[in-house]
Simulated scan of single mutants.
Amino acid sequence: MNGLDTELVAEKVAQSRRAVAETDGVDAWVTFCRETDAVPEPALPYVLGFDVVWPTAVVIGPEDSTVVLGRHDAPNAEELGVHEVRAYDESIAEPLRTTLDEIGTSGDGPQTLALNYDADDDTADGLTHGLFRRLESLLPDREFVSAGPIVRRVRGLKSETERQRVRRAAETTEELLQTAASTWGPATTEAAFAATLHELLDDRGLGTAWARDYCPTVHLGGDSEVGHTLPGEHTLPEGELLHVDFGVRRDGYAADIQRLWVRGEPSAELRAVFRDVRAAIDAGHEVLEPGVVGHEVDAAARAALTDRGHPAFQHAFGHQVGRVAHDGGTLLGPEWERYGDAPRGEVRAGEMYTMELGVDTEWGYVGQEEMVRVTDDGTEWVVPPQTRLRRLSETD
């Protein structure tokens, strides 16, 4: 995208003000950052939309917002037209304190500021330790709490602009996968298949949803090592699977989808495993609705798979998707230590999730991943799910 994303930032800042107003015990949300080209701040695309150089504070209160930033960054903020802009030359201290004093405090104690740090959610944890220490010295009379709950609401609840962008990314992902599959031949390697998708992306000026080296992740047949692997030199034997995990990033938003093709006629046993995988995904999908807790969705899918005699998958069943493939917030995962509190969050209408699991077999990895948007009374597919094994047509 070129230029400032004014419409999107205006949508998300309005959402941010509502989130602050409805968060008990918080007077303002402060996103504090600097040199964001070198050290990206995950919230900045939502609340400002461009990188900054000098120390910068985006201060969002329940009714209005102000950005305090260096004079050379200020013209972009003025053009954005979303915040009051306070530019400085030598020190951020005085304009930042003035801005916070104008917001005031909602209680009898010191002003409480929600800052951009969080113990479990990387998308809410952009504040470096050095900048935190600087804020402590600049604002010794304020109390600090994590802005994680606010960030999860703002990042998770997709605006109409965001919904459309994620949908377009998913539709493009499906289209490019189908195009790449149509070029497959018996001599095609994992690396060659990945190169085809990269060429299709480059032709359209699109990016990958995660690191390009293993986006797509391509597995050909039962001898391919499953996981976040780099594409290798495997080719596809008769009756075995092409498995691809892939996502396009366009207009700043990502998709994350897994699809399967089989070379020739699949065995009855392979068809049965595919049905089991689909049944497990459907089991999780059936309980995914507003108000359900993340680990409850994971448990439903996990039980459906193990009840059919397959081993449990060693990852979360689903995650949010948005600006990146793994978009933080509530996780549809088990209550494992590595996930912290993310699986204990509640699902909310407006969030967008993947649902993924698979079984490693002699024919290859039977992995599926779908994308859904949570609605007021359930979910809707972002793109149609894969409900049958697709066949590869051999080309010269």
Rank of each mutant, 00 (worst) to 15 (best):
P140C: 08
P231S: 02
D120N: 15
E78W: 08
Q111G: 06
D24H: 15
A300K: 07
R155A: 08
Y117K: 06
V292D: 02
E174S: 08
A349V: 06
V372F: 01
L389A: 12
W210I: 00
W381T: 13
G104F: 05
W54N: 11
A93Q: 14
Q164E: 09
T98D: 13
A180K: 00
Q258F: 07
E199I: 12
V82D: 02
G291H: 05
E225C: 05
T208N: 04
A191P: 06
G207A: 04
L138N: 06
D396R: 15
G205P: 03
V9G: 00
L139W: 05
A10P: 11
A87N: 05
L392W: 03
G148E: 09
M352F: 11
H295M: 10
D282E: 13
V297G: 01
R86M: 09
R275Y: 11
P237M: 03
D24Y: 12
V166K: 01
E162L: 08
D376V: 06
T395F: 05
D377Y: 09
E265M: 07
L331H: 07
V68P: 05
D141S: 11
E22K: 15
E362V: 10
L4K: 14
T330V: 12
L357S: 11
V68E: 02
Y88Q: 03
V383C: 04
T56P: 13
V85N: 13
R259T: 10
R278W: 07
D276Q: 13
K12F: 14
Y253K: 07
S159D: 03
Y214K: 06
S16Y: 02
R259N: 11
G364F: 00
G291I: 01
P110E: 04
W210C: 00
R134K: 12
T354S: 11
V39N: 10
T179K: 08
E94A: 14
G318N: 03
D276P: 05
D256Y: 15
A19Y: 04
V374K: 01
H315V: 10
R133E: 15
A211G: 10
R86G: 07
S224M: 00
E7D: 15
D118T: 05
R275P: 09
L242R: 00
W54R: 13
P311K: 09
M352C: 10
D101W: 09
E225W: 12
R153G: 07
L135H: 00
P186V: 03
L206K: 01
Y46L: 10
L242V: 09
A87Y: 10
R323W: 06
R344H: 15
G340D: 14
G207I: 00
A268H: 14
N2C: 12
R18S: 11
L100D: 01
R97K: 13
T379G: 07
S182E: 15
T361L: 09
E394D: 15
A325K: 02
G205C: 07
P42L: 09
A14N: 13
T36G: 03
G126Y: 02
E369M: 14
R391V: 12
W336D: 01
H315D: 06
V273L: 14
H72V: 10
V82T: 06
L357R: 10
L69G: 01
L176W: 01
Q111K: 14
P186Q: 07
D251W: 06
L176M: 11
G221Y: 02
V273A: 05
A119M: 11
